[in-house]
Amino acid sequence: MRHVLVLNASYEPLNITTWRRAMVMLLKGKAEGLEHDLGRPIRPDHHLPTVIRLRQFVRVPYKQLPLTRRNVFHRDGHSCQYCGFQGEQLSIDHVLPRSRGGGDSWENVTTACLRCNVRKGNRTPREAGMPLAREPRRPISSLYFEATRQIRAGTHQEWAKYVIGA
């Protein structure tokens, strides 16, 4: 099933929908097509959309993404931020250890394999001589996760210019 990135009238990503729903919005005049899959014509003059933009601005309330183990792993690409290991033996590491005043926040937790987590111990990455691959940051939204996954997989490279940080 092909997915379509839906942008607000301000070009801000809103959600990801199916190509059928996107076609309905295009045919009803509620959206305009910005990017199309030229390899998949529906009719000689119509191609499947991959990015559409709503004609009218939709106000969406902001909802923060909760700090959960699953979301931290997803943000970090399910890989250790110290050595790059990808596998089942992953854990959550506090950049500034809790015993030294570090709390549970997006900016202080990262994904680490068990080996690196034990090696780092009760130290900061600088003290342990273990630099982080990426500085931990608060993700923008769950839509950001899905969109960047699609972009990295190579299925929707054209989404990159609409998703900040992808």
Score class of each variant (00 low, 15 high):
residue 34 L to S: 04
residue 69 R to N: 05
residue 51 V to N: 09
residue 29 G to F: 09
residue 16 I to Q: 05
residue 19 W to P: 00
residue 36 H to C: 06
residue 20 R to K: 13
residue 36 H to Y: 14
residue 42 I to Y: 13
residue 63 K to N: 00
residue 69 R to C: 01
residue 69 R to S: 03
residue 34 L to A: 03
residue 23 M to W: 07
residue 35 E to F: 10
residue 50 T to D: 05
residue 46 H to W: 14
residue 16 I to Y: 06
residue 58 V to H: 06
residue 21 R to C: 03
residue 55 R to A: 00
residue 19 W to F: 10
residue 64 Q to P: 07
residue 36 H to R: 14
residue 67 L to E: 04
residue 42 I to L: 15
residue 66 P to E: 10
residue 64 Q to T: 04
residue 47 H to P: 01
residue 27 L to N: 15
residue 47 H to C: 15
residue 59 R to N: 06
residue 53 R to H: 02
residue 17 T to F: 02
residue 54 L to T: 04
residue 55 R to T: 06
residue 53 R to P: 02
residue 56 Q to H: 10
residue 41 P to E: 12
residue 35 E to W: 08
residue 54 L to V: 06
residue 32 E to T: 10
residue 50 T to Q: 07
residue 57 F to S: 07
residue 25 M to T: 07
residue 31 A to M: 12
residue 63 K to P: 00
residue 36 H to E: 14
residue 53 R to F: 03
residue 18 T to A: 02
residue 44 P to W: 12
residue 43 R to P: 00
residue 65 L to I: 11
residue 46 H to N: 02
residue 67 L to A: 04
residue 41 P to W: 14
residue 24 V to G: 02
residue 45 D to G: 07
residue 36 H to L: 13
residue 44 P to G: 11
residue 30 K to P: 04
residue 61 P to G: 00
residue 63 K to S: 04
residue 69 R to E: 06
residue 50 T to S: 14
residue 20 R to F: 07
residue 33 G to R: 12
residue 47 H to Q: 13
residue 59 R to A: 11
residue 44 P to M: 12
residue 18 T to Q: 03
residue 59 R to H: 10
residue 66 P to S: 11
residue 36 H to W: 12
residue 43 R to K: 15
residue 21 R to Q: 11
residue 64 Q to C: 00
residue 39 G to R: 15
residue 17 T to H: 02
residue 38 L to D: 12
residue 15 N to E: 09
residue 22 A to Y: 06
residue 62 Y to L: 01
residue 30 K to V: 09
residue 56 Q to E: 14
residue 17 T to C: 08
residue 25 M to G: 05
residue 22 A to T: 10
residue 68 T to A: 03
residue 25 M to H: 09
residue 55 R to L: 11
residue 30 K to C: 02
residue 36 H to A: 14
